[in-house]
């Protein structure tokens, strides 16, 4: 999917400067508290996030939409995820 097809995120999480697994944990907590099927973007600069956000989506049943450009000049990357109802249930179960 090219960046132009990725919908505008409704939620932004800024996890830059925080090492893995903190960006993934932030994503899981946002998914748990979300209503509906929101599109969430996480900003991260840990080198593991590029692989671990898509892996988290696969494991939890969310959809990884891809990377978009970072909206400011503070560096890092922006990873966009579409949360589904089932992913919310899974995330809630595991977060407990």
């Amino acid at each position: 999917m090219s960046a132009t097809e990725i919908p505008e995120p409704q939620v932004w999480l800024d996890e830059r400067g925080r090492p893995c697994p903190l960006p993934v944990i932030a994503m899981a907590k946002a998914a748990k508290s979300a209503h509906g099927s929101p599109v969430i973007a996480v900003l991260a600069d840990d080198p593991g996030a590029r692989y671990d956000i898509p892996a988290w989506c696969r494991m939890i049943g969310a959809t990884y939409l891809g990377e978009i450009s970072v909206p400011d000049d503070k560096g890092g990357s922006a990873y966009v995820v579409q949360i589904s109802e089932s992913a919310q249930t899974d995330a809630s179960k595991s977060i407990g």
């Binding site: 893995c20 697994p21 993934v24 080198p47 593991g48 590029r50 692989y51 671990d52 892996a55 988290w56």
Partner: peptide, 17 residues
């Protein structure tokens, strides 16, 4: 190197933990 394993990355596996 502070980089995740290229093996895990190539497989699409979770690299953290």
């Amino acid at each position: 190197t502070r980089r995740p394993s290229h093996v895990l990355a190539a497989m699409g596996a979770l690299t953290g933990g």
